[in-house]
Amino acid sequence: MSTVKLTVNGKAVSVDVEDRTLLVHVLRDHLNLTGTHVGCDTSQCGACVVHMDGKAVKSCTMLAGQADGSSVTTIEGIAKGDELHPMQAAFRDNHGLQCGYCTPGMIMSAIDIVQRHHSQGSGGQLDEATVRQELEGNICRCTGYHNIVKAVLDAAGRMKVAQAAE
């Protein structure tokens, strides 16, 4: 057993877990943050993606101990109160989900893609081909991806406007 200290969605937490515990199980089973999903459990589907210190990682492929001392953001931590994150709003407006199982991971990966391209100085001008390529670690079995890609491109514009306004 080890004590793992994390900042999750801005709140300091401490959990005592077996060393073999995966980050996703700390989030779901110990902190009751069940928005992060376990899909394939083999690092391929991306349903478990969260942000660790600002980067999208697969929380089913990390020991909780590896995340000790890190800041973790889950799907529960991105809205401001009742106001959805622009990526969440864009998924809703563009019908970017059907069953919704992959959606939390899709949204966390998509935010990472947009932030990465903003910070790389491309001015957030994401194109469809780039979004499709960079969503390769997230699998959706319902939508055929078309509306997911539309949502990410829509949100990239909204996030740029929001960033400019700050």
Binding site: S43, K55, S109, G137, N138
Partner: peptide, 9 residues
């Protein structure tokens, strides 16, 4: 290699 989340780790 892998996908973006794998490449971060």
């Amino acid at each position: 290699i892998g996908d973006p989340a794998v490449r971060y780790r």
